[in-house]
């Protein structure tokens, strides 16, 4: 089962390696990890999507909490949060096919970020699941490259990570 966690950490050197090291040595599987500084420049916030049962999730939270630079760990409840992932997808596209691809992009609310002689790069920002849908639709064109940011997530409404 997939779990989305948000982790508030001190913004200092080595924190990322502490966290990624913890995951690998305790055998937790990370699907994605995204990190960026918060409105307080002393703090960074990570969004981690990990796979595992309830035992794994409990251990994950507890072990993360043991790391000194970790200030807060919160596992999001299904349906209570908004998540986004940015993907750039470069697909094969001849001039003849271009209008069709543009139409598809529009239908999916994706943007065309770059157009080349034989390729088009689509920019897509939505949930990871919707990203997968788009990628499947683009497969027939021939996908050259995909690059993703990893999921970031925030709770709905007034709830915050520190509340």
């Amino acid at each position: 089962m997939k779990h989305t966690l948000t982790v508030l950490v001190e913004n200092q050197a080595g924190v990322l390696s502490k966290i990624s090291g913890l995951f690998s040595r305790r055998g937790f599987n990370i699907d994605s990890l995204a990190v960026g500084v918060t409105n307080d420049p002393k703090l960074s916030r990570m969004t981690i999507v990990a796979d595992g049962d309830d035992y794994v999730l409990e251990q994950l939270e507890k072990q993360l909490n043991k790391l000194i630079p970790v200030i807060k760990v919160k596992a999001f409840e299904e349906g209570n949060y908004i998540s986004r992932e940015l993907a750039l997808i470069k697909v094969n596209c001849t001039t003849q096919k271009r209008p069709e691809l543009m139409k598809l992009a529009e239908m999916m609310s994706a943007k065309v970020a770059d157009v080349g002689q034989s390729t088009v790069t689509i920019e897509f920002c939505d949930t990871a699941e919707k990203g997968e849908v788009l990628i499947n639709l683009l497969k027939p064109y021939g996908i050259r490259e995909i690059v993703k940011t990893g999921t970031i997530a925030i709770e709905k409404g007034a709830a915050s990570v520190t509340s």
Partner: peptide, 8 residues
């Protein structure tokens, strides 16, 4: 004292 030991 270590919550991570409980249930581990």
């Amino acid at each position: 004292i270590d919550p991570a030991e409980i249930g581990k």
